[in-house]
């Protein structure tokens, strides 16, 4: 009996999972201990945005396209938040050589979004990031539904289009 209940629960779970979002989840965000930009402990399960989409970008201070990407996003970030309620987490994979320089870099460049530190690449490995920049977009359930490698001038327009579709419950493909 217990098993049937379990099976039913599982079925229900799967059904709910599918009906809530038309977009197929690639995988759910792995739970990994990383750090806040101030050096405090932070587990990725704390990443949430009240059912609204989340963007996670992997970057490093030595990565030229990453810096361009974040400068470009920073210019339009406030508009993005107003329009879609999206939240962006920029995960730095700088190691100890430069990880302590991330906080003054972020503030010095007046970036408005959240920044996290992954100094030994634990989250990078769990999410299979080869080289930065690598951008993931999560739906309201915390599932990765879209990802993109590299940054070319203007790619941020693509990101916000995807976010708008997810927020409106539309198919992204």
């Amino acid at each position: 009996m217990k098993n049937y209940v379990f099976l039913l629960a599982a079925l229900l779970f799967v059904t709910i999972g599918y009906s809530q979002s038309e977009n197929k989840a690639l995988f759910s965000l792995p739970e990994v201990d990383i750090q806040t930009v101030q050096g405090e402990r932070f587990n990725t399960k704390q990443i949430h945005n009240d059912g609204k989409p989340v963007i996670i970008t992997f970057w490093a201070t030595w990565c030229k396209p990453c810096m361009k990407e974040h400068d470009a996003i920073n210019e339009v970030y406030e508009d993005w938040v107003d329009e879609t309620g999206v939240k962006l987490y920029a995960v730095s994979i700088d190691n100890v050589r430069s990880s302590k320089r991330v906080l003054p870099t972020v503030n010095g460049r007046s970036w408005e979004f959240d920044v996290l530190l992954d100094p030994n690449g634990d989250l990078k490995r769990a999410m299979n990031v080869n080289i930065p920049p690598h951008t993931f977009i999560l739906n309201g359930n915390g599932d990765v539904v879209w990802q993109h490698v590299g940054y070319l001038e203007g790619d941020e327009h693509e990101y916000i289009e995807i976010v708008k579709k997810i927020a409106a419950g539309k198919k992204i493909d």
Binding site: K100, R101, P104, V106, N107, G108, S110
Partner: peptide, 12 residues
């Protein structure tokens, strides 16, 4: 390392 930062200024 020691840093001081505020919006628009970062010292390291």
């Amino acid at each position: 390392t020691l840093s001081y930062s505020t919006k628009g200024l970062g010292i390291f």
